[in-house]
């Protein structure tokens, strides 16, 4: 059972690492945000699921008060899902408005619209 927890947290860490590599490899702020939001959100979700599995394991072993750990992690997961994408949206919009053009872009409809 504990191996499942290790596995989930391990998968989470791999995605987090991919997110940081994306920051390094992609050319501009918009493409980097792809790595910084998707990979870290997904990586965090796996880590949270790992934590929830761990607390569920403790609850099944009789430590009933560990239910609170489970509930807290669930709330954090929901909030991360909402705030992470909202944050990415805010950053990209601010970047566009302050005049940073997407590098290598093949099409830019937002410039046409403005």
């Amino acid at each position: 059972m504990i191996w499942l927890v290790y596995l989930l947290i391990g998968i989470g860490m791999v995605f987090q690492a991919l997110g940081s590599i994306a920051l390094h490899r992609f050319p501009d702020v918009y493409t980097r945000l792809h790595g910084a939001t998707k990979c870290t959100t997904f990586g965090s979700i796996f880590i949270y699921i790992g934590i929830m599995a761990y607390s569920a394991m403790l609850v099944l072993q009789g430590q009933i008060n560990q239910v609170s750990l489970l509930a807290h992690t669930l709330i954090v997961m929901a909030l991360v899902l909402i705030t992470n994408s909202t944050g990415a949206h805010a950053i990209s919009r601010a970047a566009y408005r302050s005049g940073i053009k997407p590098g290598l872009a093949v099409v830019d409809e937002l410039r046409v619209a403005k």
């Binding site: 995605f15 991919l18 590599i21 994306a22 490899r25 992609f26 050319p27 501009d28 918009y30 493409t31 792809h34 790595g35 998707k38 990979c39 959100t41 997904f42 979700i45 997407p102 590098g103 290598l104 872009a105 093949v106 099409v107 830019d108 409809e109 937002l110 410039r111 619209a113």
Partner: peptide, 24 residues
Amino acid sequence: QMAKANLEVAYRVITGNIKPGIVK
């Protein structure tokens, strides 16, 4: 869809094969 998204971004991170743009 998130799982798919992550595999796709992971693939693009590793290969560097991108063609970005802003669409409406």
